[in-house]
Design a protein around this nucleic acid. Structure first.
Ligand SMILES: [Mn+2]
Ligand SMILES: [Mn+2]
Ligand SMILES: [Zn+2]
Ligand SMILES: [Zn+2]
Lengths: 150, 150
DNA sequence: ATATTATTGCAAATGAATTGCAATATCAAT
DNA sequence: ATTGATATTGCAATTCATTTGCAATAATAT
């Protein structure tokens, strides 16, 4: 059971002299409960049902703050490369994972890989750079779409 | 010596009943000659010096077309994740490569990796999906910036 | 309770990329 | 070479996601 987002946020807010508001709490809960990789709009639509006065820019501001605090990770997947999608699951087992997107059904599959460490260390020793994070996205056709296709 | 972009483009255009224009030719030459991963704006600025009547939207249209034809690849790197940057080097030796971006100087280092194939095949056999392309970006600090830092 | 000020809602702004349209240029057919 | 059909351009306007300025509001320390 990973630490809840609200708790992590509260800790950071205290350090920064920030304030926990009802809007933030709501948004954080939604991010945690929503599966997949929702967009700002999707989070807004969902949270707005509970608090109809909640504004879209508050959602954007909160997402930006969470990103800056490394509590969530933004992604841009292929076709919808205009909108950012957010990864809420950055604690515990779901840390450090990569993505596959099916070009047909747009579904995303998450996976992890031990080999990644090796690629990193080879690159590091070859160039003398230090690698902090890695983003890997595969594009292709998922098992489902391979079957149901002409 | 890889096949020139203009040549590849002409072949495809012929198939499609498209036309090779002076603007396209100019843009293609620029993409090929420019190092790094230029933005649409940068390509425009460069090409516009040679043909002052060239319009930015023509550059955008050409880049979109080239992307659709898989003659170039769009990337979005970290901080400037708003603008697309384009990889002209998709033929010959520069095919299938990955990127590292230094978070300090924003420089990009290209690299390739044999391990990647393994990650792909493991993922494929585990999920039954077929992987067509892979995008990997490392973020960190380059050798230069590691030295010159406090 | 009160004062301080971080945060919100709202509306307007931004900025990259796309699009409609009339004018123009390409290219195949003559 | 001339012609005609139409693909492509320049231009201006538009879209769409995201950001921002500001006055009103609400959270926290005292
Ligand atoms: Mn994920
Ligand atoms: Mn590259
Ligand atoms: Zn699929
Ligand atoms: Zn650097």
């Amino acid at each position: 059971m990973p630490i809840k987002l609200v708790t992590q946020a509260e800790t950071i807010l205290k350090e920064q002299g920030g304030r926990m508001t009802s809007q933030r709490k709501l948004i954080l809960e939604k991010i945690e409960s929503m599966s997949g990789h929702p967009t700002a709009e999707e989070i807004y639509l969902n949270a707005n049902q509970e608090d109809p006065t909640l504004n879209l820019s508050t959602v954007y501001r909160t997402l930006r703050w969470l990103t800056d605090q490394s509590l969530i990770t933004p992604h841009r997947f292929d076709e919808e490369r205009r909108q950012e999608r957010f990864d809420a699951t950055l604690t515990g087992t779901n840390k450090d994972h990569y993505h596959f997107q099916c070009q047909q059904c747009k579904n995303i599959i998450e996976f992890s890989s031990d080999q990644m460490e090796k690629i990193k260390s080879i690159f590091s020793s070859q160039t003398g750079s230090e690698v902090f994070s890695a983003e890997l996205v595969f594009y292709g056709v998922c098992a489902n779409c391979r079957e149901n296709r002409s």
